[in-house]
């Protein structure tokens, strides 16, 4: 053995593709176009992981985003869309992490614990975030005036700008 194989790890690849598959499945409850988009994104993610290309992995993330956007714009259910958004972010995160771990440690190193901890951390944050957002939406149920939505959007834009480094 002389050099390590600097490719996305098998653990990370398996986890990312499973999550991407589940996300595609969830998108299936919205519209068929979005489901096809999710499928294309999953294939792209697989290609990015097998080729070891960060750019293709990013493009797959972008495809997931477009599918979400399309599903949302065509009136998808809140739950399905939120779940699909969670899945998309998780799938991209796992894939990118598999790439990064592969670059640092290669496929030969045992990185199961490292990647499981990473996946768990991201999953917990996303689950809590989705619960909070969903809860807020339920609490304000009953057709809030669009004024509120716009004000909130302006607020979000301003806060994101502050938060962005």
């Amino acid at each position: 053995m002389s050099e390590i194989t600097r490719k996305p790890t098998r653990t990370g690849t398996a986890m990312a593709l499973s999550v991407a598959g589940l996300t595609t499945f969830t998108l299936g409850f919205t519209t068929s176009t979005a489901a096809v988009g999710g499928l294309v994104a999953t294939v792209a993610l697989a290609a990015g992981l097998f080729r070891g290309s960060r750019r293709i992995v990013d493009a797959a993330g972008g495809l997931f985003f477009l599918s979400l956007l399309f599903a949302g714009a065509t009136g998808a259910g809140t739950e399905a869309l939120l779940l699909a958004a969670l899945g998309s972010i998780l799938a991209w995160d796992l894939a990118e992490n598999a790439h990064s771990v592969g670059e640092h440690l290669g496929r030969e190193t045992d990185t199961l614990r490292l990647e499981l901890v990473h996946a768990a951390a991201t999953l917990v944050v996303l689950a809590v975030g989705a619960a909070v957002v969903y809860g807020a939406d339920r609490a304000a149920a009953g057709g809030q005036p669009i004024t509120a939505v716009v004000l909130l959007l302006v607020g979000v834009v301003a806060l994101v700008t502050v938060v962005t480094r």
Binding site: L69, G75, V125, L152
Partner: peptide, 18 residues
């Protein structure tokens, strides 16, 4: 599009940004 679901998805994104 006045779709609340997209705003919720954006909200999830804000949580990740935080």
């Amino acid at each position: 599009t006045r779709e609340a679901s997209l705003l919720l998805a954006a909200g999830l994104g804000v949580v990740v940004l935080g």
